[in-house]
Computed example of a mutant assay.
Amino acid sequence: MYGSSAFHFIFSVTFIVFFFGGLCEASRHVNVDIINDIGSNFQLGLYCKSKGKDLGAHYLASHQHWGFQANLNFWETTLFFCHFQWARGSQSKWFDIFNANRDYRLGICQDNPCVWSIRPNGPCRLLKGQEKCFPWNVVI
């Protein structure tokens, strides 16, 4: 009899943690917006994905933008990365376009969208009239 009650208690606690954790996860999301600022007459090709979600390929004309909504996982370790190409494929770079450790945990993209201006030297995050630029990720 004791083993059965312990099982029910553990099962109930596990259910509650996953149920409420799922509700919290569903409400924690960020919006990411990507702008092609490579230069006039340059089309920007981009392909974004995370470990579990493929957002597919997109092509942006100069100053055009595209965005997506990212749901944060329970541990707040969500990561989306994008591969960028321009100048007829001669330029090929990649960047972690959303990194929860960098963009969410510090409160940067919690109440505001993460807006990224993609430039030849690297992406710049735009927030409330300010920008912070980052280098491209290095391929090892």
Rank of each mutant, 00 (worst) to 15 (best):
F81R: 03
C82Y: 02
C82R: 00
H83E: 07
F84C: 09
F84V: 08
F84Q: 04
F84N: 03
F84I: 11
Q85V: 10
W86A: 07
W86V: 10
A87S: 11
A87Y: 08
A87V: 15
A87M: 11
R88N: 15
R88W: 13
G89H: 08
G89T: 09
G89P: 09
S90R: 13
Q91T: 12
S92A: 13
S92P: 11
K93H: 14
K93L: 15
W94Q: 14
W94H: 14
W94F: 15
W94M: 15
F95Q: 04
F95H: 02
F95I: 07
D96W: 03
D96M: 06
D96P: 05
I97L: 07
F98I: 04
F98R: 00
N99M: 07
N101V: 14
N101H: 10
N101W: 09
R102K: 01
R102G: 10
D103L: 02
D103S: 04
Y104E: 04
R105K: 06
R105F: 01
L106P: 02
L106T: 05
I108N: 05
I108L: 08
C109Q: 03
C109R: 00
C109A: 12
Q110G: 06
Q110D: 10
D111V: 13
D111Q: 12
N112I: 12
N112G: 09
P113D: 03
P113Q: 04
C114A: 05
C114N: 01
V115S: 05
V115C: 03
V115M: 05
S117E: 10
S117D: 12
S117W: 08
S117C: 08
I118D: 01
I118V: 13
I118R: 00
R119S: 05
N121L: 09
N121G: 11
G122R: 00
G122Y: 04
G122L: 05
R125L: 00
R125P: 00
R125M: 02
R125F: 00
L126D: 09
L126I: 15
L126R: 03
L126M: 14
L126S: 09
L127G: 02
L127P: 01
K128S: 13
G129A: 08
G129L: 12
G129P: 01
Q130G: 09
Q130A: 13
Q130L: 14
Q130K: 14
E131V: 12
E131G: 12
E131H: 08
E131P: 06
K132D: 07
K132Y: 08
P135T: 02
W136Y: 07
N137A: 14
N137M: 10
N137I: 03
N137V: 04
